[in-house]
């Protein structure tokens, strides 16, 4: 059987945050979105390590914005989910839903 790589939990969350933010997805906004929706703090170091890994796998692409004074003269890096990334997240969603289906213990939680 061919080896299939599934997304890790944090990778899953990051890609969903990118999809929610659309054009405005850069480090600070992504971490705030995750904090707001998941209720957990995210360190920018681990967020960027994940984004870098996702980009190296071709699931996410990034582009530099313009440098602004409110960022100490440094540019923003904007992220977008690629078509490959969308396929991957659908695949992961399907796999999770298949595992979820029919579990009576979790019905209340849904």
């Amino acid at each position: 059987m061919a080896k299939r790589e599934y997304l890790g939990e944090f990778e899953f969350v990051v890609i969903l945050a990118l999809l929610r933010l659309g054009q405005d997805a850069y480090g600070v906004e992504i971490s705030r979105e995750i904090e707001r929706r998941c209720g957990r703090g995210v360190s920018l170091g681990s967020l960027y390590a994940t984004l870098e890994r996702l980009e190296s796998h071709g699931l996410v692409s990034s582009a530099l914005g313009e440098a602004t004074p409110e960022r100490g003269g440094r540019a923003k890096r904007y992220f977008q989910v690629t078509a490959n990334g969308l396929d991957k997240i659908r695949e992961s969603q399907r796999a999770l839903c298949n595992m979820w289906d029919g579990l009576k213990q979790l019905e209340v939680m849904r």
Binding site: Y26, L44, Y48, L64, R71, G72, R74, A75, K76, R77
Partner: peptide
């Protein structure tokens, strides 16, 4: 370029949080 973006994000977020401990930890 990545490191530069991280430094910029930390700078921007620090303006709101204003906590040196948070900045050091990050």
């Amino acid at each position: 370029a990545w490191q530069d973006a991280v430094a910029g994000d930390l700078f921007e977020d620090y303006q709101q949080r204003r906590s040196s401990t948070w900045y050091w930890r990050q």
